[in-house]
């Protein structure tokens, strides 16, 4: 087996005398102190923020608190298909579906959620509900986390609360347009054709 002789790092008299090394170290720390305290703003290297007063923006795909997206008239896009509550591994979503009234354009076409509740304390923020939703009705793109509170009841978000949370861009709708029956863009439904 070959042996390797590793040379010890050569120390000069300057290294052994400590003082030049100490001066160098002090120059380094004083320089950094000056840059970070008084230097020009773009050269500051401080990595922390003043947290409660300043917050960092969450990453683009951060899964924050849920929101229910709106239709044009402000009602939820949700059609109460129960896909999300079925997909939810934490079983934190509770939905009571209801039929539209007789004579409503949507009657017999889709349902709506009479009750839509998410227990944010049970939620594990996996995002499966968003994946499962066929209507782009539930989203986690709000960019904020669930605000802290002392009371458990404050974490039970009902339909109105979920509808009141805007997305990161400040709007309540999504970029995906909805095609209402009767719209020109609607592929068309015809009960007679068996749709």
């Amino acid at each position: 087996m070959a042996t390797y002789k590793i040379k010890k790092p050569a120390r000069t008299f300057g290294d052994q005398a400590y003082l030049p090394a100490i001066a160098k170290g002090l120059a380094q720390t004083f320089g950094r102190l000056y840059t970070n305290l008084l230097g020009p703003e773009d050269q500051k290297k401080t990595a922390t923020v003043r947290y409660p007063d300043e917050t960092r923006e969450y990453p683009e795909r951060f899964r924050g608190v849920h929101r229910l997206t709106h239709r044009a008239d402000g009602s939820p896009r949700c059609v109460a298909c129960l896909c999300c509550s079925t997909a939810c591994p934490a079983q934190c979503i509770y939905i009571e579906p209801a039929e539209y009234e007789e004579g409503d354009a949507q009657h017999g076409y889709e349902r709506y959620p009479k009750v839509f509740v998410i227990d944010e304390l049970r939620c594990i923020f996996c995002g499966y509900c968003v994946e499962a939703c066929p209507c782009d009705a539930i989203r986690m793109d709000t960019g904020v986390h669930v605000p802290a509170s002392h009371q458990r009841e404050h974490f039970i978000f009902d339909k109105e609360t979920l509808l009141s949370i805007p997305g990161r861009d400040g709007t309540y709708v999504t970029a995906n347009p909805r095609h209402e029956p009767g719209d020109a863009s609607h592929p068309g439904i015809d009960r007679a054709k068996g749709h």
């Binding site: 004083f30 950094r32 970070n36 401080t46 990595a47 922390t48 003043r50 007063d53």
Partner: peptide
């Protein structure tokens, strides 16, 4: 506090 924080690239406890 400020000095040790600042040259470790922190802001330090001063709020």
């Amino acid at each position: 506090r400020r000095q040790s924080a600042m040259f470790q690239d922190r802001l330090g406890p001063y709020m």
